[in-house]
């Protein structure tokens, strides 16, 4: 998929007529209830699915930081109508009792639902998410259009809700480009 097509696809997915793109400044931003980060650089915040924030520099398919701001027990990661995806009640769902291994599988299965291919999850390990005991893992996949992607997922379950940050980007050029920036962003997470 070309960069231009990527932008178009992103636009189709994330833009709706009424919700404008918002500029995110590098200084600390509250993304959800008690959930804040230092963005490090300027990002464009695109309108996203319910419960999610999505930031990008070059277009959401090329590079994106997605915030999952407290997925409740029984909810899928991706809510709302999506062409081609199963009805919300048939999507893989988060359960408060899930282990980190289950959650990694939940992300993998949810990506598969979005028609991502050749999914590979590696390096699941314990990691602090803010002050919480959380997890980290890496993912690799290929988009339906054939673009090779990489991602890193950091998260934790707090008060029965899943909080997570997913950084995803095209393997060539874009993912490595903001990798260190996102690492600092992840270190700056506070969650209460």
């Amino acid at each position: 998929m070309t960069a231009r097509t990527g932008l178009l696809v992103s636009a189709v997915i994330f833009l709706s007529a009424c919700a404008p793109v918002k500029l995110i400044e590098p200084t600390r931003v509250t993304v959800g209830d008690g959930f804040s980060v230092e963005p490090q650089i300027r990002w464009s915040s695109l309108p996203a699915r319910p419960g999610l924030d999505l930031w990008t520099v070059d277009g959401a398919t090329l590079d994106a930081v997605t915030f999952f701001k407290g997925v409740a027990d029984g909810q899928p990661l991706y809510r709302g109508p999506m062409g081609g995806a199963p009805q919300e009640d048939k999507r893989p769902k988060f359960r408060a009792a899930m282990t980190a291994t289950d959650i990694a599988e939940l992300f993998e299965d949810s990506f598969a639902m979005l028609r991502m291919q050749n999914l590979e999850t590696t390096g699941l390990r314990p990691a602090k998410f803010g002050a919480e005991d959380g997890f980290r893992f890496e993912m690799a996949w290929v988009t339906p259009g054939g673009l090779e992607m990489q991602g890193v997922v950091a998260g934790a379950v707090l008060k029965n809700r899943l909080y997570a940050v997913v950084y995803s980007g095209a393997r060539a050029h874009y993912f490595p480009r903001y990798r260190d920036t996102v690492e600092n962003l992840l270190k700056s997470i506070t969650l209460r």
């Binding site: 998929m1 696809v9 189709v12 062409g83 081609g84 995806a85 028609r115 988009t143 339906p144 259009g145």
Partner: peptide, 9 residues
């Protein structure tokens, strides 16, 4: 073309 649901559908 390329779309959200991918070429399979």
């Amino acid at each position: 073309g390329v779309g959200f649901v991918g070429p399979l559908i």
